[in-house]
Design a protein around this nucleic acid. Sequence first.
RNA 1: GGCGCCGUAGCCAAGUGGUAAGGCAGAGCUCUGCAAAAGCUCCAUUCCCCGGUUCAAAUCCGGGCGGCGCCUCCA
Length: 492
Amino acid sequence: MPLEIYNTLTRKKEEFKPIHPGRIGVYFCGPTVYGDAHVGHAKAYITADIVNRYLRFRYPDRKVTYVQNITDVGHMTDNADVGGEDKLEAQSRKEHKHPMEVAEYYTRRYFEDMDALNILRPDISPRATGHIIEQIELIKELLAKSYAYEAGGNVYFDVSKDKDYGKLSGRKTEEQESSGRVEERSDKRSPQDFALWKRAEKGHILQWPSPWGMGFPGWHIECSAMSEKYLYYSLPKDERDKSDYMIDIHGGGLENQFPHHECEIAQSECAEGKKFAKYWMHNNMVTTGGVKMGKSLGNSAYLRDLYKQYDPLSLRFTILQSHYRSTTEFTEEAIAAADAGYQKLLGSYHRLVQATKGTERTALRSDNPLGQQFIEAMDDDFNTARALAVLYDLAAETNSAIAANEKESLAGLRATWEALAGNILGIIPSIAASNESTPSTVTDALVALLIRQRKAARDRRDFATSDAIRKELDAAGIILEDSKEGTTWRLK
RNA sequence: GGCGCCGUAGCCAAGUGGUAAGGCAGAGCUCUGCAAAAGCUCCAUUCCCCGGUUCAAAUCCGGGCGGCGCCUCCA
């Protein structure tokens, strides 16, 4: 069974067929770094991370290159046609910092927040400000081919010249209600035309020289320029010439479908005379009470605030419990329920690690039935909800194998856990660190001593003492569990 | 106004023609001094409502009702 991906371009699931030999190019739209990452970013980049991780697992012989931009040129707070404010500059004024300082600060914090969610860093994180030249070159190409026009230091894309415009979103712009948002003062020929290059008004800090004067790039051109540079022009020319498309997968949040992605397609395809991305993926949003959580809606939550209350991996797990194309209902109750289930899985895995201490590591076997079910679920458009259901079967199997002390099967189970839950879903905390490690030999010895004291108390039926020991250890974050084989302990 | 999505148990959630995955919560049991952990069992005759197509529909079609997203920066 092949991997199938739901393609927004065709509105159906399609078999994934990479376009260039030996490699796969993936691009997801990254954040604008003028504020901290919130839950919506978590869903978007966990989705991208799952795509990235699964492709690497599924195509071990191909080089997967995952590119995700950092937008450090501020887009507009409102209508850019009448000089709305640059978001980065607005933030820089608020913080009394240079816009680049603001961008640097939030970029670092962004990566910290994503690291906590166990999201693998992109292979390349290109900054928009580092690719002004490439963007200008692309605009020049569009002007040369008459897909764009200049008007008073601004350059606009002429939508009427692109017959394919609207193919991703299914929109014909002229049918859109103007709703009073389109400014009459604009020097655009038509309201649906969009900016490729904007003239810098006085006081605008971020600006660069261009053939059209001092200015800054439009809101969509960076993604076209950078995705082409790293995923298409980095290929040998003969390979480029052989393919109909430039990059394999391009993704982002649903709200970017229009206008952002539509404009990217228009720019890239008109400039290059070739199809842009073959598969378009869009993740749905995070809701609370059924309503989108969003920065501008004031109901969003910053990840670093949530981390004070929840384990970041629990949040990751919560998001993986719903499909990326469905909304994720994000409430305290939903997170708590997901976390309870997640802890159960982790408990099973941790007992397995204890039970397999010192045994030889094995690789995931391809004939593993649960592994096959898991892959089948992931092959179906990255259905992580179904894939997680398989992990509960794996946990049940693991628990009974540990109880029956089936040494032979334990090593295989551990390999299965680490491949599926660890490498692909990324929900096992620091595999490398947890490997064979215990908190410390000192702690080990001290707890063992207390366990012996408690056993002595229990043997003489002094339950007041034994319960007191258990209770005090519990207060210290150590949980004792009695079984026929004796007492084991774990950290809370 | 245009484009699009969704409505599945108390909660989260998969399923898009073959007779309702999974998790949480809840109930009972096993084990146990008690607890925890684990295991077993139960927990939607039914998928917002009404019609239609079909041997068969949560799934397809039509019509309602309700909720939401995009069309402005937004993951």
